[in-house]
Computed example of a mutant assay.
Amino acid sequence: MTISYIPLDKEKHKDLKINLQHDFGYAKEAHIAAASIREYAQLASVMPVVFVKDPNSENFHSVTMLGTEKGSNLFIHEGKWQVHCLPMNIQRYPFDVRPDGEKLGVFFDENSALITDDGEPVFTPEGEPSPFLENRQQLLSELANSEMATQRFIKKLVELDLLDPIELLVNYANGEKRNITGMFSVSEKRLQDLSEEQVVELHKSGFLGAAYAVLMSLGQLNRLVHLSNNTDKPIQNLQLRVGDAISKEQPAAEQPANS
């Protein structure tokens, strides 16, 4: 069913209830999810964090890799999330924060399968936000604030020329091979070559740790291989190429699409 976000209204939606016991069906086809700087450290312990470029605006965005195939989320198996960390952009569903006139407002997907008759109430009988909604509003506020910090971080990476293209060579157990390009990561060499003044500036802004978290997260590519064993298309191995090591004769880019 098509996703349709509408403004949350306490009068129109006073009886709205959300099912908290679900099988992550809304995320099973998401092979990437938006990632914010606030959660890099946690995400880096369980999944790769990379950058993709919007072909229209040319702006970079940070995302987590949830799979190597469009339409397949390796972190969901038999309705359960397979690791301890859940990206905030997946936690927030079916809610979102979006411009509503001159301010930001809470929206929800009116077509979401999580809307049920016996779920968690969004509003109290008095029409006030329920504890559940207050929790979600806090999460949405954190997401909005973290997104602004994330964009500042990415702007600094671009300014310092610290982004390198990366390529994944995927070998499947069935013999199929494919290259995944259109992604970027932090250049470890150029990060180490920064001046002392630049390093101090990154450290004071909280960006130095974030840069290294992104680098460390690439070690979680092996987790994708492991999780693929739960699918009908297991991965035999993944090979990562960075920057100058990328083949000059590579196929057309298979860029991750925003989920």
Rank of each mutant, 00 (worst) to 15 (best):
Lys177Gly: 07
Asp117Cys: 07
Glu147His: 03
Ala27Gln: 12
Gln21Lys: 10
Ser185Thr: 15
Val199Asp: 07
Val50Cys: 04
Thr116Ile: 06
Leu162Ser: 08
Asn135Tyr: 08
Tyr212Val: 11
His31Tyr: 12
Glu78Ser: 02
Glu126Gly: 01
Leu86Glu: 10
Asp164Arg: 15
Leu191His: 09
Asp23Asn: 15
Gly119Phe: 08
Phe95His: 00
Asn19Tyr: 01
Gly243His: 08
Leu238Ile: 13
Ile90Met: 08
His31Trp: 14
Ile235Cys: 04
Asn174Gln: 10
Glu254Thr: 04
Tyr212His: 07
Glu29Asn: 12
Phe184His: 05
Glu197Cys: 08
Phe75Met: 13
Met216Asn: 15
Leu191Pro: 10
Gln198Met: 09
Leu169Tyr: 00
Gln138Val: 05
Phe75Cys: 13
Arg136Trp: 05
Pro251His: 12
Ser45Cys: 06
Glu134His: 04
Lys177Ile: 07
Phe153Pro: 02
Leu16Cys: 08
Ala252Glu: 10
Asn237Ala: 12
Ile180Tyr: 00
Gly127Asp: 10
Gly67Pro: 04
Glu128Leu: 13
Pro48Ser: 09
Leu191Phe: 12
Gln151Thr: 13
Ala41His: 01
Val199Arg: 11
Pro165Gly: 11
Gln151Met: 09
Asn222Met: 12
Gln255His: 05
Ile166Arg: 04
Asn56Glu: 09
Glu11Tyr: 07
Asn89Ser: 11
Phe107Asn: 09
Asn222Val: 07
Ala253Trp: 01
Ala210Trp: 08
Leu66Met: 11
Ala35Leu: 12
Gly105Phe: 14
Pro7Tyr: 13
Asn229Tyr: 06
Phe153Trp: 10
Val122Arg: 06
Val170Lys: 08
Arg152Gly: 08
Leu133Asp: 10
Glu58Asp: 10
Leu133Gln: 05
Lys70Arg: 10
Leu20Pro: 07
Ser259Gly: 08
Ala30Asp: 07
Phe75Pro: 02
Ser36Lys: 00
Leu208Ser: 02
Thr2Lys: 13
Tyr93Ile: 03
Ala211Pro: 00
Arg190Met: 02
Asn230Val: 14
Val83Pro: 03
Val83Ile: 11
Lys103Pro: 00
Ala245Glu: 15
Leu238Phe: 08
Lys12Asn: 11
Gly119Asn: 10
Asn230Lys: 15
Cys85Gly: 15
Phe75Ile: 10
Pro256Gln: 05
Ile115Asn: 04
Glu249Thr: 08
Lys248Gln: 11
Leu139Glu: 05
Leu221Pro: 01
Leu194Val: 02
Val200Trp: 05
Phe107Met: 11
Arg190Leu: 03
Thr64Tyr: 00
Leu162His: 06
Asp23Val: 03
Met88Val: 12
Tyr26Ser: 09
Tyr40Ala: 06
Ala144His: 14
Leu66His: 03
Pro55Asn: 06
Val46Thr: 13
Gly105Pro: 15
Ala173Leu: 15
Ala33Thr: 00
Ser247Tyr: 02
Ser195Asn: 09
Tyr212Thr: 11
Arg241His: 14
Tyr5Asn: 01
Ser45Trp: 02
Asn179Cys: 01
Asn56Thr: 11
